[in-house]
């Protein structure tokens, strides 16, 4: 059983987490959902497409204008409350590393805190525990939030990702977060160059073998672009190929821009792997 706040999911369920940016400058949508109504329309669209989770973010990952806690809260807290009210069956995640912001969004109805910066604020686990929220424990190699990787090396990037995310998961558990509410994420491209992200993909099964549910965030990222020599906007096919490999390895949650395409890939792979029946098979079986 996976418990994301007020929502529970079976252990064999795969989940689409749709990205909803309340930012003017995120790399993929370039501010398309910066206006609150545009972001709300994005939520409506991804719910229609079958997303089980939305991941609402108020700060882009890359370096840029400094956004303090007050401004971050202004961007996401009321919006979370509006989405909670409109979509009671939807799991709401907020992409933040700040405990202060996490506390406010959980009070407004968030179910899951997606700490993309790997525990930069040590109090975030206490906030999740206090609200009965879930938490995503990512690996960044200890970099400062909103910095780009520069000449980072690991003896073994997969071993480092496992060690750090499992340690973070255990810290969350000790803080009082429910075992069923803890997810780990190798965090492709965070504190990693392209070769690191490729190796994490190739060896994702080792993370799955830890027993913690694994989230992958692959969508249109630079390692896909560098692998294929393609700019943002032309990375969907590469993203989906990467998604297929992670699905085969057993990833559970997929943080995505394209819900429909990713769902098809994940379902197709799960069906090939024998973890999911075909939707409707009759050919040759009449």
């Amino acid at each position: 059983m996976l418990e994301l706040g007020r929502h529970t999911f079976a252990d064999d369920a795969t989940l689409m987490m749709a990205i909803v940016n309340r930012t003017p400058d995120s790399f993929y949508d370039k501010g398309a959902t910066w206006a609150e109504d545009a972001a709300f329309e994005r939520v409506a669209a991804v719910v229609e497409q079958g997303a089980e989770i939305v991941d609402i973010g108020g700060i882009k990952a890359a370096p840029g204008e400094e956004i303090g806690p007050a401004e971050e809260k202004a961007r996401v807290v009321d919006f979370v409350a509006r989405v909670r009210e409109a979509y009671p069956d939807l799991a709401i995640s907020v992409d933040t590393w700040r405990a202060e912001v996490g506390d406010a969004v959980c009070a407004a109805g968030a179910d899951l805190l997606n700490d993309a910066w790997g525990g930069a604020d040590p109090d975030l686990v206490d906030v999740a525990a206090a609200h009965g929220a879930a938490i995503v424990c990512t690996h960044t190699g200890g970099v400062t939030p909103r910095t780009r990787p520069f000449r980072i090396e690991y003896d073994d990037v997969v071993a480092a990702a496992i060690a750090d995310t499992v340690a973070y998961a255990e810290r969350a558990l000790a803080a009082g977060v429910a075992r069923e509410s803890i997810v780990i994420d190798p965090a492709h491209d965070f504190g990693k160059h392209t070769f690191h992200s490729l190796e994490l993909t190739r060896r994702l099964g080792e993370m799955v073998d830890t027993g913690w549910p694994v989230l992958v965030s692959l969508s249109n990222k630079d390692f896909v672009g560098e692998a294929l020599g393609l700019p943002v906007g032309e990375r969907l096919t590469g993203t989906l190929a990467t998604t297929a490999i992670c699905a085969w390895a057993g990833a559970r949650i997929y943080r995505v821009h394209e819900v429909v395409e990713t769902r098809q890939v994940v379902d197709m792979v799960a069906t090939i792997a024998g973890r999911r029946p075909p939707q409707r098979a009759i050919r040759g079986l009449q």
């Binding site: 999911r276 409707r280 079986l285």
Partner: peptide, 16 residues
């Protein structure tokens, strides 16, 4: 003798 009746050939939506 419809094979689609067998559990090993079950679908999410039952065609029969």
């Amino acid at each position: 003798g419809v094979p689609a009746l067998l559990p090993s050939y079950a679908s999410i939506e039952d065609p029969v």
